[in-house]
């Protein structure tokens, strides 16, 4: 609710006889002051944990800072940015991040659509299915990572047990022991956790499609694939656009699941750009370069979001 609407509510509740009558300048000033004091704590919190660190990180990115307590920090201009953009490790981690982002977002969208369709079906105890599906999303990422690390264990993992008992593999595999496989396994863990969120976004879209549209399509003898292509998908564009932007940004920033499952290994095969920024800043104590890396990540995310929004805005159904 906006401040203006709050004011209106206050007015109508406290002075019903005067509602509709413009407030005098003194009263407006008084209310403005009250709003200021009410908003001050939130403003301070936002300044302290978001605006100030962003500003400080930007400053640090232009200096050579080799310790958390450095006092000698020479100004290096854009050298840190040049260093990052010229680093092979940066581009390698960028490639892995892009792969992770595209694969996980695509899988989450595909599975999310299927799950949303199932949850939208008129089933008995539908509320129960909906509650169960949300569980992976409700589990903290660190717990999710630990759980999947156990499932992928080369010695006692459930995945190995399942696949050997089904006769798909002959002996236990170290799923996190090869860089490419490990990255795919991390994607799988992320997809398992995040698909419910995507599904619920899409479910919201599905429930808002008027039943008349389905009926009209059926009268025109359209089959389900056609209904999906010509009715469901266009009507879901607003939900898909929101999900795409949200998930792309989140997947590009992926850090915690990597930290808990593989710590970037083996041979840096799961080191994403956010993890690379973390090790550069905190393990190597190269805070200047780490800050520059962070800003480059922000720029890439902004660019990706802008591209998405531009593409999706072309659709008449898009809300964005």
């Amino acid at each position: 609710m906006s401040v203006a609407s709050v004011k209106t509510v206050e007015k109508s509740e406290m002075h019903p006889a005067q509602s509709g009558k413009p407030a005098g300048p003194r009263k407006r000033e008084k209310q403005g002051r009250l709003a200021f004091w009410l908003l001050l704590p939130a403003g301070l919190a936002v300044f302290g944990v978001i605006i100030y660190p962003i500003f400080r990180t930007l400053i640090i990115s232009f200096f050579q800072v080799n310790s958390a307590l450095a006092t000698d920090t020479p100004f290096v201009g854009v050298d840190n940015y040049v260093h990052v953009l010229g680093s092979a490790s940066f581009w390698e981690s960028m490639g892995r991040t892009l792969y992770f982002t595209l694969l996980s977002t695509a899988l989450e969208l595909a599975f999310g659509l299927i799950v949303a369709g199932l949850l939208n079906a008129k089933l008995r105890a539908r509320w129960l299915f909906r509650a169960v599906v949300v569980i992976p999303w409700a589990i903290p990422t660190i717990v999710n990572a630990a759980m999947w690390k156990g499932i992928f264990s080369a010695q006692y993992g459930a995945l190995n047990a399942l696949l050997t008992q089904l006769g798909i593999i002959k002996e236990y595999q170290a799923w996190l022991g090869d860089p490419t496989t490990a990255l795919n396994m991390v994607v799988l863990a992320d997809v398992w956790k995040t698909t419910p969120l995507v599904a619920f976004f899409l479910l919201a879209g599905l429930t808002s499609i008027p039943a008349e549209l389905y009926e009209a399509a059926k009268l025109d003898r359209a089959r389900w694939p056609r209904i999906f292509r010509s009715v469901v998908l266009p009507m879901l564009v607003p939900s898909i656009s929101i999900v795409l932007v949200l998930r792309t940004v989140e997947a590009f920033k992926v850090f915690d699941i990597i930290y808990a499952m593989t710590r970037g290994g083996p041979v840096n095969g799961t080191q994403t750009v956010a993890y690379y920024a973390y090790t550069t800043a905190f393990s190597d104590q190269n805070f200047g370069v780490g800050s520059a890396l962070s800003y480059i990540i922000v720029v890439v995310i902004l660019a990706l979001s802008a591209i998405y929004l531009r593409l999706l805005r072309r659709s008449e159904m898009s809300l964005l």
Partner: peptide, 19 residues
């Protein structure tokens, strides 16, 4: 104001570490 506050908080040092 934002810039001044940030500089005050950093103690005019990039890391905030004083001498």
């Amino acid at each position: 104001l934002l810039a001044s506050a940030a500089l005050m908080l950093t103690g005019c040092s990039v890391t905030g570490a004083g001498t």
